[in-house]
Amino acid sequence: MSRRPTARKNEAFVVNSVSRVFGAGHTAVHALRGVDLDIPESELVVLLGPSGSGKSTLLNILGGLDRPSEGTVHFFDRDLTAMSDVELTHYRRHDVGFVFQFYNLMPSLTARENVELVTEIADDPMSSGEALALVGLEERTDHFPAQLSGGEQQRVAIARAIAKRPTVVFCDEPTGALDSQTGQAVLRVLQDVNEETGATILIVTHAAATAAMADRVIDFADGQIRDVRINEHKVSAEEIEW
């Protein structure tokens, strides 16, 4: 059974027989068991699955935070699995944006400065103002995280992730800590980013409804991909039923 839908565009990621085992011997945990997957560029992809299904492990490997125990991962023509730590750092620095469930903002920096933290080390970033405008926070640029709501903090995190003009943005449960309305707004921002910058966006979530806004939905269970669906009728974030 082929899990590979026909590729119309360039593949951003090509994942070949990737396994990830934590620990060894009888305590070993198989988080991923031989995953094969292609992700075309500029798509908004949602990885669905229950806790422990391996979706976050895959996201970490694609994001250069972890390495597979077996198999290869290519990012365009570059082999992530063959990269040194320095090269992985370089990859995260220039090609990748991250958004986390708990935002992970620097509390000691303002919204603008949190974004500048990244733009200072990027090659061709947008301005911090531009990035914050993209997420609708142009009015709150000089506020510290402590002065922002959870949704606003997550939007700053998204602005920080996209300001470097990344090729791909990884979001691990981006709405997990937010109420539904705020969650919707955050997803809307991700959708806008995808449309306006053309960045590939991978969202890991266990909220199945999110799938409605994706180009592609990947279902995870027990460390394997159960299904890959192309969503022909994707809806805007506001229309998602929670």
Binding site: L105, M106, P107, S108, L109, E113, E120, F144, A146, Q153
Partner: peptide, 28 residues
Amino acid sequence: VPADYSRSAGVVRALGRWLDQPSRMIAR
């Protein structure tokens, strides 16, 4: 809740012109 750093904003902004973000984190 993230620690509130707003009180330090003024001071750091005064020095801020010469500081990059990591240095601002230290200063704040």
